[in-house]
């Protein structure tokens, strides 16, 4: 992680409401190149909405989102071009069921980047190799386990060579025995220097791999710091309560 470089992702005063409910109440948040930021918080705290504002799947109501120095909320930006630099991995995988794993990975390469099929396929296979699924290139999603599907989902964003990847609860929909494979891929990705923002409940993974843990509650960032500090010596009462309920559950 390079502290002195300009941040890859920077949110300033981000505000978002759904009807009368204000979900994000002015978020300031930035991520350095190569950093893994891990966001935790109770459900309804705004974690997912925060993530989805970072590539404008949700339109922020106010504030700015800057990616690699470009304000993606500015009028007239080519959001589709920018989104290729911002990978996203979904809780429910969202693989296209009518395409093979390779088809899923190469669709944007072919349609958005206009790559010819052979080049796109080569790139797609390389991405599948990174997630350990070279042999599943021609399988359809319903022939894959949940863990394999999620790894294809990760390969789909990696194929576009993003600057940053957003993970929205990537393991929540998986059976416990399949979680490990996905976390392993994420860990390798982190070691290769990828910038990542992860919303998840995998606290052991956060302890082991995160550079920074961010605790959100009721639309605000309440506390953040290195994992050993946030988990070992939480300062805020709400964070203590949250960690305690998690400990009870396990």
């Amino acid at each position: 992680m390079k502290q002195d470089l300009p941040p890859i992702l920077e949110l300033k005063g981000l505000v978002k409401s759904f009807g009368a409910l204000q979900v994000l109440k002015g978020i300031d948040f930035s991520v350095q190149p190569g950093e893994l930021a891990f966001i935790i918080g109770p459900s309804g705290s705004g974690k997912s909405t925060l993530l989805r504002c970072c590539n404008r799947l949700e339109e922020p109501d106010g504030g700015s989102v800057t990616v690699d120095g470009i304000d993606i909320t500015a009028p007239g930006v080519d959001i589709n071009r920018l989104r290729q630099k911002i990978g996203m991995v979904f809780q429910s995988f969202n693989l296209y069921p009518h395409m093979t794993a390779l088809g899923n990975v190469t669709l944007a390469l072919r349609k958005v980047q206009g790559m010819d099929k052979a080049t796109a396929d080569a790139k797609g296979r390389a991405a599948l190799e990174r997630v350990g699924l070279t042999d599943k290139a021609d399988a359809y999603p319903n022939q894959l386990s949940g863990g394999q599907q999620q790894r294809v989902g990760i390969a789909r964003s990696l194929a576009l060579e993003p600057l940053i990847v957003l993970f929205d609860e990537p393991t929540s929909a998986l059976d416990p025995e399949l979680v490990g494979g996905v976390l392993k891929v994420m860990r390798e990705l982190r070691e290769s220097g990828m910038t990542m923002v992860v919303v998840s409940h995998e606290m052991a993974f956060a302890r082991a791999a995160a550079d920074r843990v961010v605790f959100m509650d009721q639309g605000q960032i309440v506390e953040q710091g290195p994992p050993e500090e946030v988990f070992g010596n939480p300062k805020h009462a709400r964070l203590r309560e949250f960690l305690a309920t998690l400990a009870d559950r396990h």
Binding site: N80, R83, Q84, G87, F90
Partner: peptide, 17 residues
Amino acid sequence: PRGQLEAARSTGLTRWQ
């Protein structure tokens, strides 16, 4: 499911694509 459209848009496809 909505996620299908979102996944496609997150990789930079236009609404039409």
